[in-house]
């Protein structure tokens, strides 16, 4: 296995296995797993009655009700199905700009969630993106597939690092919609520095039906850059230049723009019953992820 980035660190995975993702509800027509489904069928736990209709299995008729009421009703049981988890790590140029790169943190987060999902028999899809969505890795399940996912992620990362591209989350999300995947947990792991702006990002996010979990990979200097005097900032992805005379006022406006940007992401996530996590690239990843898993579980 080509594991250049050492994603399958045993200690790291051991910590991940202590966490669980619990879905409030999963979309119907999934595989059997550990999550309650909106489907009514072969489960163990009784949920409801409904009138009999032609085509229903006779064994599902509750004969006791028929004896008392003279009507045919069918007993419904809760179906336990899987929660599809779609991992979208950002592998754009900005994620590779620093040392160590933020992409490595993003990959660790992705592997952690992949490990959690595969352990609870969920289908895990790996969809790295930069300028576009990489759809070559299909969703898969089974505990033994973690190494396969790690290998695929490593291969995608090396390709992205050797041929860095800009960020276009909107295009990636649009393409994701086109895949018509079953509703699930969409985990976007990125710095969210999309040059197209927050409005384009949130607009496209709102069109997806998946429950969002937005993990932002950042560092303190993102909000408080250590710049003084007259500087010409150059965007590492677009090459755009911007002359800036650093003053207190400009810095305040910068921080206000930064805060507004991420507040929009946070508001969006909450509006969709999702979550937003600002993860410090320079701190321990697993400890920060643990803040999502209250009591060891993350309710999606």
């Amino acid at each position: 296995m080509n594991d250049t980035f050492n994603l399958l660190d045993p200690d790291f995975l051991q910590q991940a296995r202590a966490m669980r993702v619990v879905a409030r509800r999963v979309a119907p027509a999934g595989r059997w797993a550990e999550h309650r489904s909106r489907d009514r069928g072969q489960g163990m736990e009784f949920r409801d009655y409904r009138p009999y209709s032609p085509g229903d299995e006779l064994k599902s008729i509750d004969w006791n009700v028929y004896q008392r009421l003279g009507r045919f009703v069918v007993r419904l049981f809760e179906e336990m199905e899987d929660l599809p988890i779609y991992l979208m790590p950002d592998l754009s140029r900005s994620m590779w700009q620093e040392d160590p790169p933020r992409a490595l943190t993003a990959m660790q987060v992705a592997i952690a969630f992949a490990s959690i999902g595969l352990d609870q028999h969920d289908r895990v899809g790996l969809l790295p993106f930069a300028q576009d969505l990489n759809t070559t890795i299909r969703p898969t399940s089974g505990r033994g597939r973690l190494s396969l996912i790690a290998e695929s992620l490593t291969r995608a990362a090396e390709t992205a690092r050797s041929n860095p591209q800009g960020t276009n989350l909107a295009t990636a999300l649009s393409k994701l919609r086109g895949l018509r995947l079953r509703d699930g947990l969409l985990i976007i792991i990125s710095d969210f520095f999309d040059p197209h702006g927050i409005e384009v990002m949130t607009s496209e996010l709102k069109r997806t039906r998946h429950r969002p979990l937005l993990v932002s990979i950042g560092r303190p200097t993102d909000r408080d850059p250590n710049l003084q005097g007259d500087v010409r900032v150059r965007d590492c992805e677009t090459g755009d230049m911007q002359d800036v005379s650093i003053t207190n006022t400009v810095m305040e406006q910068y921080r206000a723009a930064y805060d507004a940007h991420f507040q929009s992401l946070r508001d969006f996530a909450h509006s969709r019953q999702g979550s937003f996590l600002l993860l410090d690239h320079e701190s321990d990843v697993m400890k920060q992820l643990a803040s999502l898993f209250e009591g060891g579980s993350y309710v999606a």
Binding site: S94, Q97, D191, F193, D194, P195, G197, D222, P225, L227, G229, D230, V231, R232, V233, R234, D235, C236, E237, T238, D240, M241, Q242, D243, V244, T249, V250, M251, Q253, Y254, A256, A257, Y258, A260, H261
Partner: peptide
């Protein structure tokens, strides 16, 4: 004054917003 020191950043998104606001 216009001889700015060039600095590469991850994104100029917030700088543009800050200057636009200013």
């Amino acid at each position: 004054r216009v001889q700015h020191r060039e600095v590469e950043v991850l994104s100029t998104l917030f700088w543009r917003a800050a200057l636009k606001e200013t």
